[in-house]
Protein backbone atom coordinates (compact mmCIF):
# COMPACT_ATOMS: atom_id res chain seq x y z
CA UNK A 1 0.00 0.00 0.00
CA UNK A 2 2.83 2.35 0.91
CA UNK A 3 4.40 1.84 -2.48
CA UNK A 4 1.25 2.80 -4.27
CA UNK A 5 0.94 5.88 -2.16
CA UNK A 6 4.48 6.86 -2.97
CA UNK A 7 3.77 6.44 -6.65
CA UNK A 8 1.16 9.09 -6.63
CA UNK A 9 2.77 12.47 -6.51
CA UNK A 10 1.49 14.59 -3.72
CA UNK A 11 0.17 17.10 -6.18
CA UNK A 12 -2.08 14.67 -7.91
CA UNK A 13 -3.84 13.40 -4.83
CA UNK A 14 -7.55 13.85 -5.20
CA UNK A 15 -7.47 17.23 -6.77
CA UNK A 16 -11.08 16.96 -7.89
CA UNK A 17 -12.37 16.13 -4.48
CA UNK A 18 -10.36 18.94 -3.01
CA UNK A 19 -11.89 21.53 -5.32
CA UNK A 20 -15.36 20.34 -4.53
CA UNK A 21 -14.87 20.32 -0.80
CA UNK A 22 -13.14 23.69 -0.92
CA UNK A 23 -16.01 25.21 -2.81
CA UNK A 24 -18.56 23.75 -0.46
CA UNK A 25 -16.55 24.84 2.54
CA UNK A 26 -16.31 28.37 1.26
CA UNK A 27 -20.00 28.34 0.42
CA UNK A 28 -20.79 27.43 4.00
CA UNK A 29 -18.27 29.55 5.87
CA UNK A 30 -18.25 32.74 3.83
CA UNK A 31 -21.90 33.64 4.45
CA UNK A 32 -21.32 33.15 8.18
CA UNK A 33 -18.45 35.55 7.89
CA UNK A 34 -20.47 37.88 5.73
CA UNK A 35 -23.09 38.33 8.45
CA UNK A 36 -20.71 40.39 10.52
CA UNK A 37 -17.84 41.26 8.28
CA UNK A 38 -18.08 43.67 5.43
CA UNK A 39 -14.73 42.69 4.00
CA UNK A 40 -14.40 38.94 4.22
CA UNK A 41 -11.29 37.59 5.92
CA UNK A 42 -8.64 35.86 3.92
CA UNK A 43 -9.31 32.34 5.28
CA UNK A 44 -5.63 31.72 4.77
CA UNK A 45 -5.60 28.08 5.84
CA UNK A 46 -8.50 27.36 3.51
CA UNK A 47 -6.79 28.92 0.50
CA UNK A 48 -3.57 26.97 0.19
CA UNK A 49 -1.00 27.85 -2.44
CA UNK A 50 1.06 24.67 -2.18
CA UNK A 51 0.67 20.93 -2.63
CA UNK A 52 1.30 20.58 1.12
CA UNK A 53 -1.53 22.97 1.96
CA UNK A 54 -3.86 21.19 -0.47
CA UNK A 55 -3.18 17.82 1.16
CA UNK A 56 -3.89 19.30 4.58
CA UNK A 57 -7.02 21.01 3.37
CA UNK A 58 -8.29 17.77 1.86
CA UNK A 59 -8.26 16.08 5.23
CA UNK A 60 -9.71 19.16 6.87
CA UNK A 61 -12.51 19.14 4.30
CA UNK A 62 -13.33 15.51 5.10
CA UNK A 63 -13.33 16.13 8.81
CA UNK A 64 -15.26 19.35 8.50
CA UNK A 65 -18.16 17.64 6.76
CA UNK A 66 -18.20 14.68 9.11
CA UNK A 67 -18.12 16.86 12.19
CA UNK A 68 -20.58 19.38 10.80
CA UNK A 69 -22.98 16.54 10.02
CA UNK A 70 -22.63 15.05 13.49
CA UNK A 71 -23.04 18.48 15.01
CA UNK A 72 -26.31 19.17 13.21
CA UNK A 73 -27.78 15.73 13.94
CA UNK A 74 -26.86 15.69 17.61
CA UNK A 75 -27.90 19.26 18.34
CA UNK A 76 -31.22 18.70 16.56
CA UNK A 77 -31.83 15.56 18.61
CA UNK A 78 -31.05 17.48 21.78
CA UNK A 79 -33.36 20.35 20.87
CA UNK A 80 -36.09 17.97 19.75
CA UNK A 81 -35.93 16.09 23.05
CA UNK A 82 -36.10 19.32 25.02
CA UNK A 83 -39.09 20.64 23.14
CA UNK A 84 -40.98 17.40 22.73
CA UNK A 85 -40.59 16.22 26.30
CA UNK A 86 -40.88 19.49 28.20
CA UNK A 87 -43.11 19.30 31.18
CA UNK A 88 -46.48 21.04 30.77
CA UNK A 89 -47.75 23.12 33.65
CA UNK A 90 -49.69 21.14 36.20
CA UNK A 91 -48.04 17.97 35.00
CA UNK A 92 -47.27 15.86 38.01
CA UNK A 93 -47.23 12.56 36.21
CA UNK A 94 -44.11 10.46 36.48
CA UNK A 95 -42.75 9.39 33.09
CA UNK A 96 -41.83 5.80 32.29
CA UNK A 97 -38.75 4.89 34.26
CA UNK A 98 -36.62 3.65 31.38
CA UNK A 99 -33.18 2.60 32.56
CA UNK A 100 -31.58 1.88 29.24
CA UNK A 101 -31.74 -0.09 26.05
CA UNK A 102 -28.60 -2.10 25.49
CA UNK A 103 -29.03 -2.73 21.76
CA UNK A 104 -29.44 0.97 21.13
CA UNK A 105 -26.42 1.79 23.24
CA UNK A 106 -24.26 -0.73 21.44
CA UNK A 107 -25.51 0.85 18.23
CA UNK A 108 -24.37 4.31 19.16
CA UNK A 109 -21.06 2.94 20.34
CA UNK A 110 -20.44 1.34 16.96
CA UNK A 111 -21.64 4.27 14.89
CA UNK A 112 -18.92 6.70 15.98
CA UNK A 113 -16.40 3.90 15.58
CA UNK A 114 -17.49 3.48 11.99
CA UNK A 115 -17.27 7.19 11.30
CA UNK A 116 -13.81 7.32 12.85
CA UNK A 117 -12.74 4.65 10.43
CA UNK A 118 -13.55 6.98 7.56
CA UNK A 119 -11.67 9.79 9.25
CA UNK A 120 -8.67 7.64 10.08
CA UNK A 121 -8.01 6.48 6.53
CA UNK A 122 -7.28 9.85 4.91
CA UNK A 123 -5.55 10.95 8.10
CA UNK A 124 -3.02 8.14 8.13
CA UNK A 125 -2.49 8.30 4.39
CA UNK A 126 -1.76 12.01 4.56
CA UNK A 127 0.53 11.71 7.58
CA UNK A 128 2.83 9.43 5.60
CA UNK A 129 2.59 11.56 2.46
CA UNK A 130 3.49 14.74 4.32
CA UNK A 131 6.36 13.25 6.26
CA UNK A 132 7.66 11.15 3.37
CA UNK A 133 10.22 12.17 0.81
CA UNK A 134 9.54 15.38 -1.13
CA UNK A 135 7.76 14.73 -4.45
CA UNK A 136 10.46 16.60 -6.33
CA UNK A 137 13.69 14.63 -6.81
CA UNK A 138 15.73 17.82 -6.76
CA UNK A 139 14.19 20.12 -4.21
CA UNK A 140 15.56 23.51 -3.29
CA UNK A 141 17.26 22.96 0.07
CA UNK A 142 16.82 25.75 2.58
CA UNK A 143 17.90 25.82 6.20
CA UNK A 144 15.64 27.82 8.50
CA UNK A 145 17.08 28.87 11.84
CA UNK A 146 14.84 30.48 14.42
CA UNK A 147 16.18 33.25 16.59
CA UNK A 148 14.58 35.45 19.23
CA UNK A 149 12.85 37.08 17.30
CA UNK A 150 13.73 36.74 13.65
CA UNK A 151 14.24 34.13 10.96
CA UNK A 152 17.49 33.15 9.32
CA UNK A 153 17.26 31.54 5.88
CA UNK A 154 20.24 29.79 4.32
CA UNK A 155 20.38 28.44 0.78
CA UNK A 156 23.44 26.20 0.87
CA UNK A 157 23.43 25.35 -2.83
CA UNK A 158 23.02 29.01 -3.83
CA UNK A 159 25.37 30.40 -1.19
CA UNK A 160 22.75 32.84 0.00
CA UNK A 161 22.11 33.84 3.61
CA UNK A 162 19.23 36.16 4.33
CA UNK A 163 16.66 36.95 6.98
CA UNK A 164 12.91 37.27 7.45
CA UNK A 165 12.04 37.23 3.76
CA UNK A 166 12.03 33.80 2.22
CA UNK A 167 12.12 33.55 -1.56
CA UNK A 168 11.14 30.31 -3.32
CA UNK A 169 10.45 29.64 -6.98
CA UNK A 170 6.96 28.58 -8.00
CA UNK A 171 6.57 24.97 -9.00
CA UNK A 172 9.80 23.70 -7.43
CA UNK A 173 9.66 21.85 -4.15
CA UNK A 174 11.34 23.66 -1.31
CA UNK A 175 12.75 21.35 1.33
CA UNK A 176 13.30 23.07 4.64
CA UNK A 177 15.61 21.94 7.40
CA UNK A 178 14.39 23.58 10.58
CA UNK A 179 16.32 24.27 13.74
CA UNK A 180 16.73 26.95 16.34
CA UNK A 181 19.56 28.96 17.81
CA UNK A 182 17.87 29.55 21.16
CA UNK A 183 14.36 28.50 22.20
CA UNK A 184 11.64 26.58 20.40
CA UNK A 185 9.97 28.39 17.51
CA UNK A 186 7.50 27.13 14.95
CA UNK A 187 7.50 27.78 11.22
CA UNK A 188 4.08 28.68 9.91
CA UNK A 189 2.95 30.21 6.65
CA UNK A 190 -0.79 29.48 6.80
CA UNK A 191 -1.35 29.48 3.05
CA UNK A 192 1.51 27.06 2.52
CA UNK A 193 0.27 24.53 5.07
CA UNK A 194 0.85 23.36 8.61
CA UNK A 195 3.51 24.16 11.14
CA UNK A 196 6.70 22.45 12.05
CA UNK A 197 8.67 23.30 15.20
CA UNK A 198 12.20 24.65 15.20
CA UNK A 199 13.80 22.81 18.09
CA UNK A 200 17.19 23.80 19.45
CA UNK A 201 19.59 20.89 19.29
CA UNK A 202 17.72 18.90 16.67
CA UNK A 203 16.46 19.24 13.13
CA UNK A 204 13.01 18.95 11.63
CA UNK A 205 12.05 18.80 8.00
CA UNK A 206 9.23 20.27 6.00
CA UNK A 207 8.68 20.37 2.28
CA UNK A 208 6.18 22.13 0.04
CA UNK A 209 5.80 23.01 -3.60
CA UNK A 210 4.35 26.49 -4.03
CA UNK A 211 1.78 26.70 -6.77
CA UNK A 212 0.91 30.40 -7.02
CA UNK A 213 3.28 33.37 -7.13
CA UNK A 214 2.64 36.00 -4.50
CA UNK A 215 3.68 37.31 -1.11
CA UNK A 216 2.39 35.37 1.89
CA UNK A 217 2.27 36.17 5.57
CA UNK A 218 3.95 33.85 8.02
CA UNK A 219 4.90 34.01 11.65
CA UNK A 220 6.24 32.06 14.58
CA UNK A 221 3.58 29.86 16.15
CA UNK A 222 5.33 28.71 19.32
CA UNK A 223 5.60 31.10 22.25
CA UNK A 224 9.24 32.17 22.23
CA UNK A 225 9.42 35.12 24.58
CA UNK A 226 8.63 38.82 24.71
CA UNK A 227 8.30 39.58 21.02
CA UNK A 228 6.86 36.26 19.89
CA UNK A 229 4.03 38.23 18.30
CA UNK A 230 6.53 40.19 16.25
CA UNK A 231 8.43 37.23 14.86
CA UNK A 232 6.92 37.49 11.42
CA UNK A 233 8.13 36.66 7.97
CA UNK A 234 7.21 37.12 4.36
CA UNK A 235 7.26 34.27 1.93
CA UNK A 236 7.83 35.38 -1.67
CA UNK A 237 6.77 32.79 -4.20
CA UNK A 238 8.51 34.08 -7.33
CA UNK A 239 8.05 32.95 -10.88
CA UNK A 240 11.19 31.23 -12.17
CA UNK A 241 12.56 34.31 -13.88
CA UNK A 242 12.26 36.59 -10.89
CA UNK A 243 13.65 33.94 -8.58
CA UNK A 244 16.68 33.57 -10.81
CA UNK A 245 17.04 37.31 -10.85
CA UNK A 246 16.72 37.54 -7.09
CA UNK A 247 19.25 34.83 -6.39
CA UNK A 248 21.70 36.28 -8.88
CA UNK A 249 21.37 39.68 -7.26
CA UNK A 250 21.86 38.14 -3.82
CA UNK A 251 25.07 36.51 -4.91
CA UNK A 252 26.53 39.31 -6.99
CA UNK A 253 26.70 41.96 -4.32
CA UNK A 254 28.80 44.95 -5.30
CA UNK A 255 31.65 45.79 -2.97
CA UNK A 256 30.13 48.13 -0.43
CA UNK A 257 31.23 51.69 -0.16
CA UNK A 258 34.22 51.68 2.19
CA UNK A 259 33.33 54.84 4.11
CA UNK A 260 29.97 53.26 4.92
CA UNK A 261 31.66 50.06 6.02
CA UNK A 262 33.84 52.08 8.36
CA UNK A 263 30.81 53.76 9.90
CA UNK A 264 29.21 50.36 10.30
CA UNK A 265 32.31 48.98 12.00
CA UNK A 266 32.93 51.87 14.38
CA UNK A 267 29.29 51.97 15.38
CA UNK A 268 29.61 48.47 16.78
CA UNK A 269 27.17 46.87 14.33
CA UNK A 270 29.74 44.32 13.20
CA UNK A 271 29.73 42.64 16.57
CA UNK A 272 26.47 40.97 15.57
CA UNK A 273 25.97 41.44 11.83
CA UNK A 274 27.64 40.13 8.72
CA UNK A 275 28.09 42.02 5.49
CA UNK A 276 29.71 39.74 2.95
CA UNK A 277 33.03 40.94 1.60
CA UNK A 278 33.74 43.21 4.57
CA UNK A 279 35.33 42.66 7.98
CA UNK A 280 31.82 42.69 9.46
CA UNK A 281 31.28 39.00 10.24
CA UNK A 282 29.05 38.98 13.35
CA UNK A 283 26.82 35.94 13.64
CA UNK A 284 24.31 36.92 16.30
CA UNK A 285 21.99 39.11 14.27
CA UNK A 286 20.60 38.87 10.74
CA UNK A 287 22.93 38.91 7.76
CA UNK A 288 22.76 42.41 6.28
CA UNK A 289 24.56 41.77 3.02
CA UNK A 290 21.50 42.69 0.94
CA UNK A 291 19.38 44.36 3.55
CA UNK A 292 18.53 47.23 1.25
CA UNK A 293 16.71 44.86 -1.09
CA UNK A 294 14.29 43.59 1.56
CA UNK A 295 10.80 45.02 1.66
CA UNK A 296 10.54 44.97 5.44
CA UNK A 297 12.68 45.31 8.53
CA UNK A 298 12.70 43.92 12.06
CA UNK A 299 11.27 40.48 11.20
CA UNK A 300 8.70 41.89 8.86
CA UNK A 301 7.29 44.34 11.39
CA UNK A 302 7.96 47.58 9.55
CA UNK A 303 8.38 48.58 5.91
CA UNK A 304 11.95 49.07 4.81
CA UNK A 305 12.03 52.83 4.35
CA UNK A 306 14.82 55.19 5.41
CA UNK A 307 12.55 56.73 8.05
CA UNK A 308 11.63 53.36 9.58
CA UNK A 309 15.19 52.14 9.48
CA UNK A 310 16.27 55.30 11.28
CA UNK A 311 13.58 54.74 13.90
CA UNK A 312 14.75 51.16 14.32
CA UNK A 313 18.39 52.20 14.79
CA UNK A 314 17.38 54.96 17.16
CA UNK A 315 15.60 52.64 19.55
CA UNK A 316 15.15 48.98 18.59
CA UNK A 317 13.28 48.19 21.78
CA UNK A 318 10.50 50.67 21.11
CA UNK A 319 9.91 49.17 17.66
CA UNK A 320 10.16 45.57 18.79
CA UNK A 321 9.77 45.08 22.57
CA UNK A 322 12.57 43.05 24.06
CA UNK A 323 14.62 43.21 20.85
CA UNK A 324 18.05 41.81 21.48
CA UNK A 325 19.60 44.50 19.27
CA UNK A 326 20.92 47.05 21.74
CA UNK A 327 20.28 50.75 21.62
CA UNK A 328 23.75 51.99 20.67
CA UNK A 329 22.96 55.62 21.49
CA UNK A 330 23.87 56.73 18.00
CA UNK A 331 23.65 60.42 17.20
CA UNK A 332 21.40 61.57 14.38
CA UNK A 333 24.23 62.13 11.94
CA UNK A 334 25.51 58.63 12.51
CA UNK A 335 22.03 57.20 12.08
CA UNK A 336 21.60 59.07 8.80
CA UNK A 337 24.95 57.75 7.55
CA UNK A 338 24.10 54.20 8.52
CA UNK A 339 20.67 54.35 6.94
CA UNK A 340 22.15 55.63 3.73
CA UNK A 341 24.78 52.90 3.76
CA UNK A 342 22.42 50.06 4.64
CA UNK A 343 19.73 51.06 2.19
CA UNK A 344 22.40 51.00 -0.46
CA UNK A 345 23.23 47.33 0.22
CA UNK A 346 21.37 45.52 -2.50
Amino acid sequence: MLVSIRLQTAEAVSRERSTLSKTLLAALLLPIAGCAAVESPDWRTLRPVSDFGVLVLDVYGDLFWWTAGIFVVVELLLIYALVRYRSRSGDSEVPDQVHGFTALEIGWTLLPAAILFFIAIPTVRTIFLLQGAPPDRDPLEITVIGHQWWWEFRYPELGIVTANELHVPVGRTASLTLTSADVIHSFWVPQIGGKRDLNPGSENRLWFTPTEPGVYHGQCAELCGTSHANMRMRLFVDDSASFAQWSAAMRATAAPDSAGVMTFLISGCAACHTIAGTPAQGKVGPDLTSVGSRTTLASSMIPNTPEMMAAWLRSPDSVKPGALMPDLNLDEQRIADLVEFLEGLR
Partner: peptide
Protein backbone atom coordinates in the same frame (compact mmCIF):
# COMPACT_ATOMS: atom_id res chain seq x y z
CA UNK B 1 -6.82 14.14 16.45
CA UNK B 2 -5.85 14.18 12.80
CA UNK B 3 -2.24 15.40 12.52
CA UNK B 4 -2.57 16.87 9.02
CA UNK B 5 -5.42 19.05 10.22
CA UNK B 6 -3.84 19.69 13.58
CA UNK B 7 -0.60 21.04 12.19
CA UNK B 8 -2.62 23.88 10.69
CA UNK B 9 -4.74 24.49 13.77
CA UNK B 10 -2.14 23.82 16.46
CA UNK B 11 -1.19 26.96 18.40
CA UNK B 12 -3.68 28.98 16.39
Amino acid sequence: ASPPVDIQQHDS
